[in-house]
Design a protein around this nucleic acid. Structure first.
Lengths: 127, 127
DNA sequence: ACGACATACAACCAAACGGTTGTATGTTGT
DNA sequence: ACAACATACAACCGTTTGGTTGTATGTCGT
């Protein structure tokens, strides 16, 4: 029921734990790519790549947009940033200042990030 | 055989993809804990927790140090930072600043042209 | 209308994962 | 010496993962 931040973290880190998916993510962060354009880059079946794209999409790391018969995928940099902030939280624990573990989901105002755009809360989704 | 950076990324993200392991990592980043002290915190067998610790150790996220009959684990914040820098690299790709990353991508100048901002933003980077 | 293309999805399979119990080995305190 | 503790590790088991092939549906160009 409750979409805990841990559920989301599970999905994000799991999605990032495969090198093909990380590579796909790099490409779609650089620009839109259709699923078949992506599939052409890898030595595996189209269906396999399609599954990888689906994993990334469910984790919120990319979004798809239909254009005719193609499905164009683009990376969501905010999701990447949300992972970064989870790691920053770990680093904060290391420094000894355990702010509030449950503040990990968002609303973390005092983030000393050099390029901090005002888009904290990642896309809420269900699983 | 030297493990490639992708192998290392696989291990790091996989290690972080389990919530119990993330919780263990938080604890050992805050301070040293013996394996049995960690195991006492979770509703699972000692062996299960021991396996989680081993996964974190193989990924380089924690190190163990023997003290008598106990094995004291502490988190390695540098490993956490290395993950952060991987994500920063992804964000750099998103910004269009593909420094030497296209070499990692395989250097296929094919579908790369969509959103290419010619903005030479002198944002500082660290890795 | 039709064929080639783009995607979606089900069924299947081997391997890896996350857990268990059991056993072995070393360490500490009495 | 010995019992309790701390750890390591093997064997096993059900589920998930990452891949395959096959089939179905929708879209574009001619």
């Amino acid at each position: 029921m409750s979409q805990t931040s841990e559920d989301r973290a599970d999905a994000l880190f799991h999605a990032l734990s495969d090198r093909t998916r990380r590579d796909i993510l790099r490409r779609v962060l650089a620009g839109e790519h259709s699923v078949s354009a992506l599939a052409a880059k890898y030595d595996m079946s189209f269906a396999a790549v399609q599954k990888h794209v689906a994993v990334l999409e469910k984790a919120g790391l990319l979004t798809k947009r239909r254009s005719g018969r193609e499905q164009l995928a683009s990376g969501d940099v905010d999701a990447v940033r949300s992972v970064t902030s989870m790691l920053d939280e770990l680093e904060a624990v290391w420094r000894g200042r355990i702010d509030r573990i449950d503040a990990l989901l968002g609303a973390d105002p005092d983030t000393t990030s050099p390029t901090a755009p005002p888009s904290p809360t990642p896309t809420p989704k269900e699983k």
